[in-house]
Amino acid sequence: MEKLMEISHVSYSYHSMQGETPALSNINFTVHKGDFLAIVGPSGCGKSTLLSLLAGLIEPEHGSILLYGQKLFQKTSGTIGYMLQHDHLFEWRTIEKNVLLGLEIQKKLTPVAREKVYDMLKTYGLYKFKNARPSQLSGGMRQRAALIRTLALEPELLLLDEPFSALDYQTRLTVGDDIGSIIKKEQKTAILVTHDLSEAVSLGNRILVLGKRPATIKSVVDISFPENISPLERRNLPEFKDYFNKIWKELNHDE
């Protein structure tokens, strides 16, 4: 498979007058096209920081991040879509205007692009609501709208930072299933940060387990389930529990 992104020896610290907070230290991994990478780790270990680095919002202090062999810089953000923890749909815009925001900013709002967004809205059951305000939508629908806003820019790599954590458990399962299928259907590469292990196992095909801050990669677990099986169905297979336990052990294993 083609190498999409290569992260080597990346370290990052936050600086403030109170002192230095090392967040990541010596992170190495590779993302291939079509991967669904899940990252788990204790809270505050530096997961969001890692995604900000991958998105090119901040620069690594040491090491390098290569996208298709090229150094990453902010202008590549067209190829990288970043979905934040909260949907951040703007109340002063309709759903339609919200999902078109990225295209509007990048001046790519062509009739063709707009048509594609409409198609996505239709496919994912939001077209009826295109003139509604975000507050009129349910949590799951808002999350789908946020995903469409990200997908509208046709990124090759999707970064998802705990995109389901604001939802209640029930919705979380279905939206997780939904969004997992959407990403598969649109043939995207994705990196998902979560601290829900079962979410990681049900969606990912590889799992990076991070240690306490400053985060290092503790282990990488490859996940394989039969093809064409939905995230929800994965949860019912016997392998699911084994993977879960394995990652649980890795997470709580202190060296």
Partner: peptide, 22 residues
């Protein structure tokens, strides 16, 4: 909300977009 500002940055927006859109 700084996260809303971050959103604009993730969509490739500049400070000017942060001002006008958020």
């Amino acid at each position: 909300d700084p996260e809303k500002i971050k959103l604009i940055q993730t969509l490739g927006g500049t400070n000017y977009h942060v001002l006008t859109k958020v």
